[in-house]
């Protein structure tokens, strides 16, 4: 349904926040987390690759499919917080 090829986007942790607002999750009208806004000055804004409206399929290889909002956002927050990596990998789907 208008879904484009998933794209891997690597966001370096170049600011103190990731700087995205996310909506959606299992059992809501938006079953996969969707980027609602991008905050100026956050890592996502600075790296310039994420866009409002994109849907996040995976974070560091972890699928968000079937996860409720709270769990999906926790996965994203922990991926940004962990000191194991200085980046977060997002598998993104675009809709046209």
């Amino acid at each position: 349904v208008g879904i484009m090829e998933p794209t891997l986007v690597r966001v370096p942790k170049c600011a103190s926040t990731l700087g995205i607002a996310v909506e959606g999750g299992a059992n809501t009208r938006q079953p996969l987390p969707r980027i609602a806004t991008i905050q100026k000055g956050g890592s996502a804004h600075i790296s310039g690759q994420l866009r409002v409206g994109q849907v996040i399929l995976e974070v560091n290889g972890v699928s968000l499919k079937g996860m409720e909002h709270r769990d999906a956002t926790r996965v994203i927050a922990e991926a940004f917080k962990t000191k194991d990596k200085d980046y977060v990998d997002f598998l993104i789907a675009e809709f046209n």
Binding site: T17, L18, G19, I20, A21, V22, E23, G24, G25, N27, T28, R29, Q30, A36, T37, Q39, H69, T73, I76, A77, F80
Partner: peptide
């Protein structure tokens, strides 16, 4: 389709 319409909106979380 009807079932889809009854699903609640999601909250938004700033990360």
């Amino acid at each position: 389709r009807e079932k889809r319409l009854t699903l609640p909106p999601s909250e938004i979380t700033l990360l």
